[in-house]
Design a protein around this nucleic acid. Structure first.
Lengths: 221, 221
DNA sequence: CGCCGCCTCCCCCCTTCGGGTGATGACAAA
DNA sequence: TTTGTCATCACCCGAAGGGGGGAGGCGGCG
């Protein structure tokens, strides 16, 4: 093979690399993911962002094959960001990379359009596999995530109204204040609370807050 | 200057680099910190660990100038790890690198022997500055951390017993169960709870849990 | 020494919470 | 249509939570 042939093959290889965008508010994490991925011969990081809106506009401009996205960024609703990226760059597969393994986070992210969910604590193989599978349109979930989902499978899910009440409880509101906030009577607020406690298998609002935080039913800051 | 001269100067430079150990349970974070620091001409990463005990033994073997330590690692008490590193490698300066900005975390880490406290969300300059200052024995705190400490300065501090009660409350125990757990009467448990609520400026245990989590008075998982 | 903070316990009082049980209308799926 | 879920509201009632005040022992500290 002559020089030209090698060159064109090289070009094809470079051009066919998986084009990646990384979005995370922690610089060390961006650098870490970038360091791991950009050493892969079949991958290429084409942009990084540190906020949700930046990530959206970046994906709109670069239209990457895969976007790695942290759900938790300041002034950013992770789920909303996923949807917006889907709007501006429909062919981009979104891999959520985060520390949260609450099953509600996973559920919502997947529902919003994310194809995969990888934990920051996962080994790098997991991350690499998720990216490559995502590029092929295949779903991939970190081990811990799958366990979490399996453990809660079949468990009752909070209704929208109940989740709303749960969020107010998580903010420290009493049943009375919840009732006022939602423009319902105290009885109704209590009924929702009781239903929530039953579903979360707890006996009071403090325990409910614990479970809701762990499960990702309410977000923390 | 001849070749040999250049070589020996290079050797001196390399040998005089700040020797670093990185401990974090998230591989992407380890890689990120490593990527940022190892590109600095005056720094050199001599080891990485992913658990507290590993970090301790690693510091014992390598005796680095600076150890970057995440407070939150599985099966690991961050404060205890700091103390142990101080024991096995007294000349190592410990820089805590973490996501938590609760002032109690900072207080405890500093008290246990950490010289600095940097947030993962801080810009890389902050991290680099902290490492260089730590090497010189100078304290450095991330901006957000300083604010957090300033905001709570002069505020009442929970007594040891109160913190103990707060932790039980955070685990979802009722006043009665707290009393049983601590082998005191219900009145005493309630008295502690009341005192805690007054100090945290809240009206009930659910709000107390919120504040305690945010302030780092109790740890989450 | 006296003072103060901490921990312990006690009293009374009222509010809030949570369980049990039941009911209504709305709306959607089968 | 029947069935089911959801959201709303209701009653009773015991348990728990929380505020107020007070008090004794104990240890540190000026």
């Amino acid at each position: 093979m002559d020089e030209k042939g090698v060159d064109s093959i090289m070009n094809i290889l470079v051009e066919s690399r998986i084009r990646l965008v990384i979005a995370d508010d922690h610089e060390v994490v961006r650098e870490g993911i970038s360091a791991i991925l950009s050493h892969q011969p079949d991958m290429r990081v084409v942009g990084m962002a540190s906020t949700g809106p930046d990530a959206v506009s970046l994906c709109g401009r670069r239209e990457p094959d895969v976007a790695l996205l942290d759900l938790h960024m300041p002034q950013t609703d992770g789920v909303e960001t996923i949807k917006q990226i889907g709007d501006v760059s429909p062919q981009t597969r979104i891999v959520v990379v985060t520390v949260y393994d609450g099953d509600e986070y996973v559920r919502r992210a997947i529902k919003a359009g994310a194809i995969s969910y990888v934990l920051k604590s996962a080994p790098r193989e997991d991350l690499l596999l998720a990216v490559r599978k995502a590029h092929l349109g295949l779903r991939h979930l970190s081990g811990g995530v799958v366990d979490g989902l399996a453990a809660t499978r079949g468990e009752p899910v909070l209704t929208p109204r109940e989740r709303e009440v749960m969020e107010l409880i998580a903010e420290g509101l009493s049943n009375h204040d919840v009732a006022v906030a939602l423009n319902v009577t105290l009885r109704t607020a209590k009924a929702h609370a009781t239903s929530i406690f039953r579903k979360l298998v707890v006996t009071d609002r403090t325990q409910a807050l614990r479970v809701a935080l762990r499960r990702g039913i309410v977000r923390w800051m």
